[in-house]
Design a protein around this nucleic acid. Sequence first.
DNA 1: CTCAAATATACGGCAAAGCGTATATTGCAT
DNA 2: ATGCAATATACGCTTTGCCGTATATTTGAG
Lengths: 84, 84
Amino acid sequence: MTEQIARTPKQIGAAIRRHRRALGINQKAVGEKTHLRQATISGLEAGEAGIQLRTLFGVLTALNLELVVRPRTKASTDKIEEMF
Amino acid sequence: MTEQIARTPKQIGAAIRRHRRALGINQKAVGEKTHLRQATISGLEAGEAGIQLRTLFGVLTALNLELVVRPRTKASTDKIEEMF
DNA sequence: CTCAAATATACGGCAAAGCGTATATTGCAT
DNA sequence: ATGCAATATACGCTTTGCCGTATATTTGAG
């Protein structure tokens, strides 16, 4: 199961964490590759909603990941107010 | 071709724009659904690297889109410094 | 070509991200 | 149980997102 669906910051954070662990590297190492602090990686993986795209894609690149944007597959609640 | 690969803020912005247009709605309407300004949607679609996950996922939800996180498929340069 | 709709840009203000640095906490092997 | 590695949290600082509001520019229909 190497393809993870993400519809929220928490979900993409969790997905990134799983992939990072699968690669056997720690947050500090990702921080060094990306010029981000270990604390910043921690926040991303925790799903902080304020994380910037700069940070997200830096980490994705460091982990050799990519995103796919596509229409939602299954059902969804779609109440934006309840999203975070 | 409704599945778009994104490895950079610019790419995800472009992908979102294509999907939005395919749905036939404008930035102002997306802004109203998400409680974001039209100017903010514009920035997201333009690929501004500082856009936050809060903003990204709000728009994805409004457009009924989702992300998939997966290992990169084809080749990649992977020079993070050159990413933006 | 014209004009309206859509999109991009501007400015001051407030809140928050990410920084360096440092420490607290958690998890895991022995 | 101990100790180290990994992760989470804290503080002051600088930078920047997003806000409301407003305007400039681009695009497309007629």
